[in-house]
Design a protein around this nucleic acid. Structure first.
Lengths: 270, 270
DNA sequence: ATATGTGAAACCCTTCACAGCT
DNA sequence: AGCTGTGAAGGGTTTCACATAT
């Protein structure tokens, strides 16, 4: 999300578009794979294919970083790996803390991609005394009371929240108060933070719901119908208002129009 | 302006922008919370705050679904919950399969948000015979050889991949061949799929890298410098080669320009 | 001959501001 | 008076197509 910034005198157009930033890690991964196979150079076409984008976009993206290619030849793999790493800030070490070592937190801690690439798990923190001291991914879990001290002593500026939704905002507040300015949130909650703090969220159920939307549309298209509406036919409004069937706003839902198509179905699908 | 697209005859402008679709789950979650507190109506301002967006955006989003509000009053919570659920396809049941029941897969299976809201875990599948039969989140893990049968028998159209990167494309191919048309990919790999198949990916390390980029920029801004260049630069890749450090493309790194600022560090830590 | 780097066009998304309805 | 719904303006992102460099 937008960095809550004020302005920038723009010494030299240091504004890399957010969309480009979000793709740099993809390029970096593809380049690292090439590097491991000792491939010396790569064209925008090849690299784009490996990263799953189109080549025009990739070239435009790279143009924001500088002229790192050679016309008629392509890009030097090692050189690009370094330049992108530097741009992303991965040439330095980022200590991170993870709060909430339940199922998901433990899985994340064990996830390899976390430790590599400039990131180092400085501490795993949980509010459950029974967890404290237990080793997860080779690191002993620490108690939440020590959160501030841990962050301070390790110079942590990036925190990962993997707590239940109910605890997330509270943990977030403590992280921010202790000096954390970037947060990766796995709890299904909207976090509110002061200006200057970045939050990114990863939400599994939201991703599934987006897929379901498209899936539904595909199913609808199959048999000629222009859209969704499960299998239930559209019904005259105000059907069975017995239990859960919510009616249109105040009253008189039978007016001109309400939705593009479906009103309430006669029977609520389970 | 007529959308000169090669798409639907547009019976009734059924094109909900992708950005809007991606926010519907957020609104739905906020509305569900209100519903549980028995709040009858909500204004765009209030709901927007709860969902973490601004109210103009929310109203625009809802306008794509239809006129579900009441001017001067706001939106009926129950009614909106239903309309958004329907639009997202959550009024029907979506059986899903998850392939790869390692740390992450198990965590996801246990994650509550998965099972609720229209989704039902039809099967957990793994390639490790030692896992087969073990109960995870109350479901016995099945062997990957049965993947096609499982998908077919359960009418599964959504699959979740939580395998190691190396296995992901192969699993993806089998899922698609068996009839899955939507995939949520947790493996750090670009999946290639035929047209008509949707893939969404969730990538933990990419999210962290994006945060690091912004974090680095903040740190640079603090002391006046316009940007990055870590304090203690880690050695660039492949430092220990004869011609250490990746040189600029072919030769002549000392030409006019290369990057916005940092070229290679002046001193290569060998 | 080949592939980059980039203006310009096209497209998509967000924000503004106010008409219109309750 | 209050709040939704929406044209229109504004900004950002993607794509095109070609000048430019090796």
């Amino acid at each position: 999300m937008a960095t809550g910034r004020t302005h920038r005198p723009a010494t030299r157009s240091r504004g890399i578009p957010e969309a480009t930033v979000a793709r740099l890690p993809l390029y970096l991964r593809a380049l690292t794979a090439l590097s491991e196979r000792s491939v010396p150079t790569v064209s925008s076409e090849e690299l784009a294919a490996a990263a799953g984008v189109n080549s025009a976009k990739l070239r435009k993206d790279f143009s924001y970083l500088g002229s790192y290619g050679t016309r008629g030849v392509g890009y030097d793999v090692e050189y690009l790996v370094y330049q992108i790493s530097r741009e992303l800030g991965l040439t330095q070490d980022w200590p991170i803390v993870m709060v909430g070592i339940g199922n998901l937190g433990a899985a994340l801690a064990n996830y390899g991609g976390f430790a590599s690439r400039g990131f180092r798990v400085a501490a795993l923190i949980d509010a459950d005394p029974a967890m404290v001291g237990k080793p997860v991914a080779g690191i002993a879990v620490q108690f939440i009371d020590d959160l501030e001290r841990i962050i301070d002593e390790n110079g942590v500026s990036i925190g990962v929240i993997a707590t239940p939704a109910g605890a997330a905002q509270q943990v977030c507040d403590r992280l921010v108060a202790a000096g954390v300015t970037s947060i990766l949130n796995f709890a299904p909650t909207v976090l509110s933070v002061p200006d200057g703090v970045d939050v990114r969220k990863v939400d599994l159920s939201i991703e599934l719901q987006i897929l379901a939307f498209h899936e539904q549309r595909k199913a609808g298209e199959e048999n000629g119908a222009p859209a969704p509406a499960a299998a239930a036919p559209v019904a005259p409004p105000v059907a069975a208002r017995t239990a859960a069937a919510p009616a249109a706003p105040a009253d008189a839902p039978g007016d001109g129009r309400n939705g593009p198509d479906g009103d309430m179905p006669a029977v609520m699908p389970a």
